[in-house]
C-alpha cells in the first residue's frame, strides 16, 4: 500500500510541468470534446454516506478517445464496495458525444448517447435521474439484477469570456425493467483561476487551477415528472492541472433533499496520451 502511494506521488511529481486547462466538472458535461487521436484514461471514485445504511465507495475507470473533432467515445468500467457488505463489479458503459454544429456559437449543443450494461448495485452516480429510493438489499442481491439502460443527454454549453456555463437534460430508459423513462439534470459554471500562461514551468500557480460549482439531481419520470421524491446535490468543483497531460479533480457534493446523501465526495485523476491514434496507426502499418 505504502509502495503504491509512493509510486503514485512519484508519478505525479515527475510528470512534466507545462500547463493547460481541463474542465473541473465531474458530473456536468460541457461542449468541449477530446482532441482527435488523443486518449484519456481517468481513475475516479465516489464516496457516499447515506442517511440510512453504510457508507460506500464506487470506483470507476474511464477511457475516452477523440475519434474525430466532432465525435468523442468513452468506455467506463465500474465497481462498488459497501462497508459491512461486499465489493462487486457493477458493469460497463459505452458513451458517445457528437457535436452537430461546425463552429462555436453562443450556445453550443452536444448530443450524448450511452448504453449501460450495469447491474442494480451501481453507485458511481455519474448521473442522478428519476426518483430516489433508499437501498436495503445487499450487494450480492443487487449485483444479480441487470440494469441495461439507454441514456441520452442534451448538452448545452457556453463560453462567455473565460467563464463556462453548461446545462444537461438527461433522459434514461431501463431496458431491464418496466420503469418508463426517467429524467434528470446537471448544470455547472466554472472558470480558470488564471487566464494567462506563464513562460516557465510551474505546478502550483493559479493558471493550473480551475474551479466552479455544479448542481444536479433527478426530475422523476414518465410516471411523475417533477421534484417529488428526488435527490439533488450542490457541489463545488476544483481541478488542478498537475502536468501537461494529467489532472486531479475534487468535488464534495452536498445533498439538498431528505432523499439525497448528506455528502458525496468525488475525485478523479486523468492522464492524457496525445497522438495515441497516430501511434496505433503506425503499429498497424499506417503511413505516418
Amino acid at each position: 500500500m505504502k509502495n503504491g502511494l509512493a509510486f503514485a506521488l512519484c508519478l505525479l511529481w515527475t510528470a512534466s510541468g507545462l500547463s493547460a486547462q481541463e474542465s473541473p466538472y465531474v458530473v456536468t458535461y460541457d461542449h468541449h470534446l477530446e482532441e482527435p487521436g488523443n486518449l484519456e484514461i481517468e481513475a475516479s471514485g465516489t464516496l457516499g454516506a447515506p442517511r440510512s445504511g453504510s457508507f460506500y465507495f464506487a470506483p470507476y475507470i474511464e477511457v475516452e478517445y477523440g475519434v474525430t473533432a466532432r465525435w468523442t467515445g468513452e468506455l467506463y468500467l465500474e465497481g462498488q464496495a459497501t462497508a459491512g457488505d461486499s465489493g462487486v463489479f457493477t458493469g460497463w458503459r459505452l458513451e458517445n458525444r457528437f457535436r452537430p454544429l461546425k463552429r462555436e456559437h453562443w450556445i453550443n449543443p452536444i448530443l450524448y448517447f450511452e448504453y449501460e450494461g450495469l447491474n442494480e448495485a451501481t453507485r458511481i452516480g455519474k448521473e442522478i435521474v428519476g426518483n430516489a429510493h433508499p437501498r436495503r438489499e445487499s450487494n450480492a442481491v443487487l449485483s444479480k439484477v441487470p440494469a441495461h439502460e439507454i441514456e441520452t443527454k442534451l448538452i448545452l454549453s457556453s463560453d462567455i469570456h473565460d467563464w463556462n456555463l453548461a446545462g444537461n437534460f438527461i433522459v434514461e430508459k431501463n431496458l431491464s425493467a418496466a420503469e418508463g423513462f426517467e429524467f434528470g439534470y446537471a448544470a455547472g459554471v466554472s472558470r480558470p483561476l488564471g487566464t494567462l500562461a506563464s513562460g516557465g514551468a510551474c505546478r502550483w500557480c493559479r493558471e493550473n487551477f480551475s474551479a466552479g460549482v455544479e448542481v444536479y439531481g433527478g426530475l422523476g419520470g414518465t410516471n411523475g415528472f417533477g421534484f417529488s421524491q428526488t435527490a439533488h446535490y450542490l457541489a463545488p468543483v476544483v481541478a488542478w492541472q498537475v502536468s501537461s497531460n494529467s489532472t486531479l479533480k475534487f468535488s464534495p457534493g452536498f445533498g439538498l433533499t431528505q432523499l439525497s446523501n448528506p455528502v458525496l465526495l468525488r475525485f478523479g485523476y486523468s492522464y492524457e496520451i496525445r497522438g495515441f491514434g497516430t501511434q496505433v496507426a503506425q503499429w498497424l502499418g499506417g503511413k505516418h
Binding site: 486547462q21 474525430t68 473533432a69 463552429r103 462555436e104 487566464t195
Partner: peptide
C-alpha cells in the same frame, strides 16, 4: 484557433481562456 475546422480535423480550442489563445 477558437472555432477550429472540425471537418478537416482541426479541433476547436475554445476550452482555453481567451488570453491563452491570444498568446
Amino acid at each position: 484557433i477558437t472555432n477550429g475546422n472540425p471537418d478537416r480535423g482541426m479541433p476547436s480550442f475554445s476550452k482555453l481562456p481567451e488570453n491563452r489563445r491570444w498568446q
